[in-house]
Structures are given as C-alpha cells and as structure tokens.
Amino acid sequence: MSDLGITEIKAFLPSRDYALSQRFYQDLGFTRASEGGGVAYFHRGHASFLLGDFRPEGPLYLHLLVQDVEVWWQHVHGCAVARTYADQGVTLSAIEQQAWRMRDFVLTDPAGVVWRIGQNTD
C-alpha cells in the first residue's frame, strides 16, 4: 500500500452559539489559532480540533486520553467553566473508575458535545 500522506486527524465540533463556544474553549485553556468562514482552529499542546458554526444533529462524544486524570480534573474545575456556563448546559462529573481499566470524568460543552477525559489504569 502506498503512503497516502495523512498528516493528522482532528475532530470537527459543532456549536449552538459559535461565539459562546469559542469563549468556553478559550476559558478552558485552549488557544484559538485562527478563525474565519465559520470555522475556528483550537489547540493545546499536541491536541487540536476545529469548531464549526453549525448546530449538532445529535450528541457527539470525544475521548481525550491524558497522563494524569486528577491534574486534568483539577484544571477543568479550576477554570470554573461548569459554573460559568451552567445555564448553557455545561456539566462536569466526578472522576470514576471504569470497568474498562480507565479512570475518567465527563465534561459536556455548551453544544452538548460530551468529552470523556481519562487515563489508563492497570
């Protein structure tokens, strides 16, 4: 099979309120690197995604694998996005041990995108 030249793959997230979703992700600590034509590019470290100015048809689920779930939970909690955007449907769960050998928590964004953020366990 020949090299098809794939550079990366990233999620394309919807938004109910494009400006609100951009503020949410910036408050969460992501950098908006560019924006235009209804698409904004966000990144933090080696993780990146596109945010689109379109409404979701149904819930989108994403998984972010991290080295230390406690550090990430403290970061998300410390950003206060769950409190700041609570009236927009944003929620933050506690960390739980899952049967599939992972500790994770759930963060729901203003458009209903469900992020499972976790680390592998033995």
Rank of each mutant, 00 (worst) to 15 (best):
H77P: 02
A99E: 11
G38C: 06
P56A: 10
G5N: 14
V69C: 08
R32G: 02
R116P: 00
F49K: 06
P14R: 00
C79N: 05
T108C: 06
H75N: 08
G37M: 09
D27Q: 11
V113C: 05
V113N: 09
G58R: 15
D68T: 08
P14V: 08
V69P: 00
P56R: 07
D17H: 15
S93D: 07
R32L: 08
Y25F: 14
L20G: 02
V71D: 14
W115F: 15
A94K: 10
D27V: 05
Q97R: 11
S2N: 12
R16Y: 10
V90L: 12
K10D: 04
V113T: 15
L28M: 10
A47M: 09
L28Q: 06
Y18F: 14
F49H: 04
S2W: 02
W72M: 15
G112M: 07
R44T: 01
T91C: 08
E96F: 05
F12V: 12
A33K: 13
A111P: 00
V114A: 03
V114K: 12
Y25G: 06
L50C: 09
L20A: 10
P14N: 09
D53A: 14
H75I: 03
W100R: 05
A11F: 11
A94M: 03
A33Y: 07
D3N: 13
F12R: 11
H75G: 04
G58Q: 12
K10H: 10
Q26G: 04
T91I: 13
V114R: 15
H75F: 09
P59C: 04
Q119Y: 00
F30A: 03
G29R: 07
F54W: 12
L51T: 02
G112H: 04
S2D: 10
R55V: 12
F105I: 06
E70W: 04
Q88P: 01
I9L: 12
A94C: 04
G52R: 05
V114G: 01
G38W: 11
S15V: 07
H75E: 14
V66S: 02
L20P: 00
P14F: 03
H63Y: 15
Q67K: 15
I6D: 03
